[in-house]
Nucleic acid binder design. Structure first.
Lengths: 354, 354
DNA sequence: TGCGGTTACACAATCGTTTGGGTAAGCTAC
DNA sequence: GTAGCTTACCCAAACGATTGTGTAACCGCA
């Protein structure tokens, strides 16, 4: 039987009203009024009877009818490249938690990082009349954003930022700087970057942060040492192949802007006879739950993914309520593990066995 | 601007009707009729004018108004333990694809594998008046299921099955058998299982399938060699600690019913000086994208996660339409990689260095 | 006694669709 | 010429909530 008792056809305001011999509008006002005294709507005795009966019958207002009248659905649309990316999935968990706390529900869709799909999915969400959108897959120079703004649609960005629009992100620039400091202090001088997708602000900022700090420290980072790649293991693998195939000595350290790319790269290095953590240092980004658990634990920059999701939802709520909001950039933290704990070998001019 | 042209306040049937000087109901019938001749509702000339104007104004019917009238929301509820589990996230991608193809939208929520939360989230979904539920987190002996059935709520199970209810799953029993065959043929005789959570049919079936086949082959598998654990890396790590701490020789092979548990276990074995793939074979389950890319590539049973998600959605659609459906169990496939490619050492009675 | 002010409700319109039932006009058939 | 059938529409009642505007009844008070 449980708490619900809800039958197939839900009970309506009218049902409650006729059972109590009063008008539906009175029931509505009682159940609706935030203050516990139903302000001028009903006597406290009636109010109590209404509330008791509502509870007993398991009344829950029909959201469709409510939305029709109020023009608010209390539903949000979330668009991410793919939910099977644990980074976005974790952010979504933050969104869901904050949404549930605020009586919002969320639709999620995958755009596979394709601008066309992104637009299509956004239109589907809007056709559903969501109250606002959280976009987790903005591309550099997207034309969807100004479009949405022109149509006065409430939205915020998540994970990736875009100038002129509110976003909840990790401070990726700082994240890149942390890695530069760490590798420099460990004595590395010859490094390569697995830089991610050039249309994503995460990749751009992490790379830029690293590069700027590295150069400030006196390091060199030629363009050829910055390899753009996909964010997954396959992308990291390919980038690592490129790195080992380049003329000259192999770098003593590699910074991959994503843990999965880092894992892919580790596999490749190992296949080429390099021991990660000894012959070559590897640092990832996001500190996904896997990083610390890998056979060779991976150094990684922890970004507060769950909190970013929460923030994004809370920001969107404020945008929906017509408030002005500022972007937030949450501070990351570097966790150094075995994959980059050692200093580079002296005889680091060694070339590959293969 | 763009394809939409949709302004802030969407255009309604009445808008179109008054602009054409006809009645809203006529417009509705024209836009509604599936056959391209609007059956008796309007002349083909009028019908064409209606369709043209609808397209031009970017009309899209208000789903709330429609639902209010039709008592169907074309929304589905999906409940999973957690979306940051790539297995469930991948299944969800399958659901989303199939849902989009059928003009359904989906709400997803995380239950964290807690029966209380599962029930709470289900009630939230039902309060939203979803047309049906996909449950990806059923526990053995759940009382929610009969409850939902008594309330005539359409639902299907996904990933985990439960006797008497329709589900889309991997054939986990076969999966376990595949691993037993593989390890037996490779010459292993002393194995341990990292068996997962005992309330999940996935864990139970994979374990049972392995165990049955192993015994059929003439192997022994004492209860003490079956370690129940969480599905994540941490769980795998702890289970592996238990295994190496047990009296007697370390097993030559370990089957973890989940890739993440397998990865955690690999880390532990390595920390104990065992080389995975040489001193100890490890096999995982699900063949997540990571498995093949690990520094030591992980043997794993591939379950068609995406297809399971698709199937679940298609089954639910049929349940919603009042059809009778049977459970589907999709066939898994074993991929043997370095982590279990070698045969056990001769002098496998060796004990740990630590 | 009568007046103004509250209290405690009821009434009805409205949101945007869908859908069962009209009905007027035109045509066919006899 | 009219019965009967189509064609091409219109009308109005829902669906379940919210909300602006009545309005009786009652109270206090002069």
């Amino acid at each position: 039987m449980g708490a619900g008792g809800q039958s197939r056809v839900p009970v309506t305001l009218k049902d409650l009203a006729s059972e109590l011999g009063i008008h539906p509008s009175t029931v509505s006002r009682v159940l609706h009024s935030t203050s516990d005294v139903a302000r001028g709507a009903a006597s406290s005795a009636t109010a109590q009877k209404v509330r008791d009966l509502a509870r007993e019958r398991g009344y829950s207002p029909d959201p469709q009818a409510k939305s029709l009248r109020t023009r608010r659905t209390r539903a949000l649309g979330v668009i991410v490249p793919r939910l099977s990316d644990i980074v976005l999935a974790t952010m979504y968990e933050g969104i869901e938690e904050a949404a549930a706390e605020n009586n919002y529900s969320t639709f999620v869709m995958n755009s596979h990082d394709s601008p066309d799909e992104q637009r299509r999915k956004a239109e589907i969400m809007l056709a559903r009349r969501v109250d606002g959108l959280i976009l987790g897959d903005v591309h550099d120079g997207s034309d969807l954003l100004p479009d949405l703004r022109a149509r006065h649609i409430p939205f915020v960005l998540m994970n990736r930022r875009h100038p002129g629009f509110p976003s909840a992100t990790c401070d990726d620039t700082v994240g890149g700087e942390l890695v530069a400091d760490h590798l420099w202090q460990a004595g590395h001088r010859r490094v390569s970057l697995i830089a991610g997708e050039p249309y994503a602000s995460t990749a751009l900022d992490r790379t830029a942060g690293f590069r700027q700090r590295w150069q400030d420290l006196g390091g060199e980072l030629p363009d050829s040492s910055v390899i753009w790649s996909r964010f997954d293991t396959e992308g990291g693998k390919e980038a690592a192949e490129t790195i080992v195939a380049q003329p000259g000595p192999v770098p003593t350290a590699v910074f991959a802007v994503n843990d999965f790319a880092a894992i892919g790269a580790m596999g490749t290095f190992r296949a080429h006879g390099l021991t990660v953590g000894q012959d070559i240092a590897v640092v990832g980004f996001n500190d996904t739950s896997l990083a610390a658990q890998l056979p060779i634990p991976l150094s990684s920059v922890r970004s507060p993914m769950f909190q970013i999701g929460r923030q994004a939802m809370l920001m969107l709520r404020r945008v929906i309520n017509g408030e002005q909001v500022d972007s937030v950039r949450m501070t990351p933290q570097l966790f150094v593990r075995e994959s980059s704990a050692a200093s580079p070998h002296r005889e680091s001019q060694r070339s590959l066995a293969s």
